[in-house]
Nucleic acid binder design. Structure first.
Lengths: 214, 214
DNA sequence: ATATTTAATGAACGATGTTCATTAAAAGGA
DNA sequence: TCCTTTTAATGAACATCGTTCATTAAATAT
């Protein structure tokens, strides 16, 4: 009993099955997926390589054939969160051409992401902010590019006379800081019930609108 | 050489010196002070009981005669930060009777604390937020009381027709979230130079002023 | 059938937080 | 002064952690 079933993975053979490179990618992805699950379930501090290995049915040492170390693995988890975050903001931005509507939807998407994927948000913006700046191997888009969307939308709104003239950097910093502050409180302070959070979000939006409109 | 001098502490005798209860308090304080130093120098993740014991010249086990475990020790560190934080805000609040000046000074004190004691701020409001809610043994003032100052000043300003009518909870939440957002970005994102941070702080203050004034 | 390549492993190392029986210095009593 | 009791401090041990590396055996190549 409990003898390894010949399923999609984890067949009985544990040694030296040769992978065609494609299979290696698959396992690497499976590790990442499982790591995300473990991370989301148990949180950052309870995340351990040995637990992850146990979940996968592999020896801890095997993980190091696919990821250099724990840090790089977590970095990949963060990176996934970041592309998702960027996509969400970009989609909100391109969903309308009205300058204010655009800013509003971006703000909404920001908060929504933070509240929905709060564990990710914490890892990305509170616990491992350092990951934000490591320009890693596969280069791709830098992590911080997610906030370019914010800045671009501010400039866009200024070009359309929807946002008052002034340093667009400060304006997008204000947006960033306000949204981050709201999300941070909402997901970390238990007294922030959905109702209280919603009120705060709405008032903060109004505040930003008042402060930035031309 | 390096033979234990008969100084204020750490005499040669290592065993069973009996303490009069007062001395025990002193050592407990020394441990806390040294823990704060270690924590500030090395950060949260590099903080270890064994390093701390080495700094003090004691065995790791000794620490457990004075603090239940690492968590309680760090909690005491956080608690120190919190009383300091509360004091700073309270002092700013009582330094003037002008409603807006008061709110402004509280905001200034908040940001100043965050930037000055950034390591504390991170531990208190980002990494170990859970400490905020543990009503510990010596009861004293709950950690969250620090934010009562914010709320009180909003109400005070409303009573003096300086802040417009409306739910004072939302208003103080807005203050809290905005200030936290600014501080969080400033101390975590290296691109936030002092200049950029100062601009952000000023604009955020103006924004809050516009949004809350009657 | 044999040799080569390589995915996976077990065992080990150092560091961590924590517990507990043991030690020896101080205090109290004769 | 000697003996007993109290107790501050310890060393050794345990479990857990991240990580490395020589070893194993399955898949492939010859």
């Amino acid at each position: 009993m409990t003898q390894p079933t010949n399923g999609d993975d984890k067949t009985g053979r544990k040694f030296g099955r040769r992978r065609k490179g494609e299979e290696k990618e698959q396992l690497k992805e499976l590790i990442l997926k499982t790591a995300s699950e473990l991370f989301i379930e148990q949180g950052y501090s309870a995340f351990s390589m040995r637990k992850l290995a146990a979940m996968l049915g592999y020896s801890p040492a095997t993980l190091y054939l696919y990821y250099k170390d724990k840090d790089h693995l977590l970095f990949s988890v963060v990176d996934d969160g970041f592309t998702r975050f960027r996509q969400e903001l970009a989609q909100a931005s391109s969903s309308t051409s009205d300058p204010w509507e655009r800013l509003d939807r971006i703000g909404e998407a920001y908060v929504q992401f933070g509240l929905t994927y709060s564990t990710y948000y914490q890892l990305m913006f509170m616990w491992r902010v350092d990951y934000l700046f490591e320009a890693k191997q596969g280069e791709e888009v830098p992590r911080l590019a997610a906030f370019q969307v914010l800045f671009d939308s501010v400039k866009y709104a200024q070009d359309h006379q929807a946002v008052k003239p002034g340093d667009p950097y400060v304006y997008s910093d204000m947006l960033w800081a306000s949204l981050h502050g709201v999300v941070a409180l909402a997901i970390q302070i238990p007294m922030f019930t959905p109702e209280r959070t919603a009120k705060l979000v709405n008032h903060t939006k109004d505040m930003l609108y008042m402060a930035l409109r031309s």
